[in-house]
Simulated assay, not measured.
Amino acid sequence: MHGKVYLVGAGPGDPELLTLRALYLLQNAEAVVYDRLVSPAIMECINPDATLHDVGKVASCKPSMQDDINHILLCLARTHQHVVRLKGGDPFIFGRGGEEQAYLHQYGVTVEVVPGITAATGCAASLGIPLTHRGLASSVRFITGHLRDNQGLELDWASLSDSSCTLVFYMAMANCSQIVESLIEHGRSPHTPIALAQDATLKSQRWALGTLQKLPQLVQTFSPPALLIIGQVVQLHPDYPEPIESSRAALTPEPSWVLM
Rank of each mutant, 00 (worst) to 15 (best):
Y6A: 08
A10R: 04
G11C: 05
G13T: 01
E16D: 15
L23F: 00
Y24T: 11
L26A: 03
L26E: 00
A31Y: 01
V38K: 05
I46G: 06
P48V: 01
D49E: 15
A50D: 06
T51M: 12
L52Y: 10
G56M: 05
C61Q: 09
K62A: 14
P63E: 07
I69A: 00
H80G: 01
Q81M: 11
H82S: 13
V84A: 07
V84S: 05
V84I: 06
K87P: 07
G89V: 06
D90G: 06
F92V: 12
F94L: 13
G95M: 04
G95I: 02
G98V: 04
E99S: 12
E99H: 09
E100I: 05
Y103D: 10
Y107R: 05
T110N: 09
T110A: 13
E112I: 08
T118R: 02
A119E: 03
T121L: 14
G128H: 11
G128Q: 11
I129M: 08
I129Q: 07
T132N: 06
G135H: 01
L136T: 00
F142T: 01
F142C: 04
H146Q: 13
G152L: 13
E154N: 14
W157M: 11
A158T: 12
A158R: 14
S163C: 10
L167V: 09
S177F: 00
I179R: 06
S182R: 13
I184N: 03
E185Q: 13
G187E: 12
T192Q: 10
I194P: 07
A197G: 11
T201L: 07
T201C: 07
K203Y: 00
S204M: 03
T211L: 01
L212A: 08
Q217W: 04
Q217A: 15
T221D: 15
T221G: 13
F222C: 13
F222G: 06
L228M: 15
L228G: 08
L228Y: 07
I229F: 08
G231T: 06
G231I: 04
Q232A: 13
V233N: 05
D239L: 13
P241Q: 11
P243R: 10
R248G: 10
A249K: 14
P253S: 10
P253W: 00
W257A: 11
M260D: 14
